[in-house]
Write a protein that binds this DNA or RNA. Structure first.
Lengths: 166, 166
DNA sequence: TATTGTTATACTCTATAACTATA
DNA sequence: TATAGTTATAGAGTATAACAATA
């Protein structure tokens, strides 16, 4: 076990070694993507709470905003616009129904289709949610130029495309 | 149910409406953070497979690289360097042990400490993992200038700090 | 009492596969 | 057979809280 004590000693002598370049160049970047998203989500939840909005998943709020643009979309069309799978949408729509913001209405013409229709409450809440999202933008992008934000989005898109082999 | 058919008709007449500015400005950006990270992970897994590396979680690979910089770190020190909680580290360390790349060794001096020690296999594999991560960088950042990458990282850091109220 | 580490649990976001109901 | 939607399940990454062992 002497070597283990040796390790412990090295730790003490050199507690903060510089990480190798390959590590600092990849892992923190990789992890930053998640932590930024988490920061967006946490701040949005705090703001929604402050604004007396129902506590929605970020995805549900997005569905709500889609519906406030065009009410009565079918689930499949909503999933397409939100760029998620049908099965992923189910929980978000459940969330909206549970919060009383929208209801499923089965189509009379083709009973396979379900239209999502905003309730009165949903129509009232949607602008507040939209406002919260706008606030988040203002907070998040404070002191960052529009050009830098666009550049970042474009770089991220290129990275994703590079990694997906395109 | 006539209104539902009305919705269906509007869909047909105007199937691809432009989303409102507030939506395009936030949600796709929010979601991009996750999708880029997923792209990194998927590509890394594919490359690790091609290079005959053990299939490790990204986090486990990161722990392995930390150990290849300094062997025998305690779990708490490893968690600190990886910027995760102790409890989150457990699964990653289990992963490394399961793959035979490192072993837990309890310290004789202070039996509360556990040192992670690379095995022979771990020392052989670490450089290959590092190489894979370097390849990923090359793939991900192809045709993107170093300046743009640094700028993106810095912008992301600012966004996170803004959102966290700093 | 304080520290190290583990376990149990939960949460967010997402996907795939198998299923039901309808056309 | 094809489409719309649901359910069941998984997986990645993370956290909190309660716990055991040790100091």
């Amino acid at each position: 076990m002497d070597n283990l004590d040796g390790h412990a000693t090295r730790e003490c002598l050199n507690a903060w070694p510089a990480p190798p370049h390959s590590v600092i160049a990849t892992d923190p970047l990789y992890r930053r993507f998640r932590s930024v998203q988490a920061a967006f989500r946490r701040r949005a939840q705090a703001l929604m709470h402050d604004c007396d909005c129902p506590q929605l998943l970020h995805g549900s709020a997005n569905v709500l905003l889609q519906l406030s643009e065009q009410d009565g979309l079918t689930l499949t069309e909503l999933a397409r616009r939100c760029e998620i799978e049908n099965s992923s949408l189910t929980a978000l729509v459940d969330d909206l129904e549970r919060s009383g913001l929208a209801v499923r209405e089965r189509s009379a013409n083709d009973r396979r289709h379900i239209h999502m229709v905003l309730t009165q409450k949903g129509r009232e809440v949607a602008p507040r949610i939209r406002h919260v999202w706008q606030q988040i933008q203002q907070i998040a992008f404070a002191s960052i130029s529009a050009q830098d934000i666009e550049r970042m989005q474009s770089v991220m898109q290129t990275i994703e495309s590079n990694l997906n082999g395109g």
